[in-house]
């Protein structure tokens, strides 16, 4: 699992790649929480375009990040879900809990609107 962080004017964009499962999630979660610590109160957008698959532990990591960002007065949204990842979001009903946007522009527009 690779992860890049890009600080933009209006948001911080976190881009993981590969699978978010039992093997990779501990690292992903630690790095996501680090970013949230460093950018408390910011809008964080997780760009999922390069995530091939996500299991329950990956969803939990996103949820932990979501709760932390909310507690710090920020936000966390996810964008660009691949079809299989979108299916997992739907099956688990995570699409009802997390803000899911089609792409980065849509997420940035949502940040602007708040």
């Amino acid at each position: 699992m690779q992860l890049t962080v890009e600080r933009r004017e209006r948001a911080v964009v976190v881009t993981p790649s590969g699978r978010l499962d039992q093997t990779t999630v501990p690292d992903f979660q630690a790095r996501l929480l680090e970013v949230l610590d460093e950018t408390s109160g910011s809008a964080v957008i997780v760009d999922m375009a390069q995530v091939e698959f996500i299991s329950s532990v990956g969803l939990r990591a996103l949820n932990i990040g979501f709760k932390k960002s909310k507690a710090g007065g920020g936000s966390l949204s996810v964008v660009a879900l691949r079809p299989i990842v979108r299916e997992v979001f739907s099956i688990s009903r995570f699409d009802k809990v997390l803000a899911v946007h089609e792409d980065l522009n849509a997420a940035l527009a949502a940040v602007d609107a708040t």
């Binding site: 329950s56 969803l59 939990r60 949820n63 099956i91 688990s92 009903r93 995570f94 009802k96 809990v97």
Partner: peptide, 20 residues
Amino acid sequence: YSLAEAVSLKEDWGHSSNVI
């Protein structure tokens, strides 16, 4: 519950999900 319910609104309500 759904996994999303079990980790958010209904966390610590003592039930699980189809996904798990």
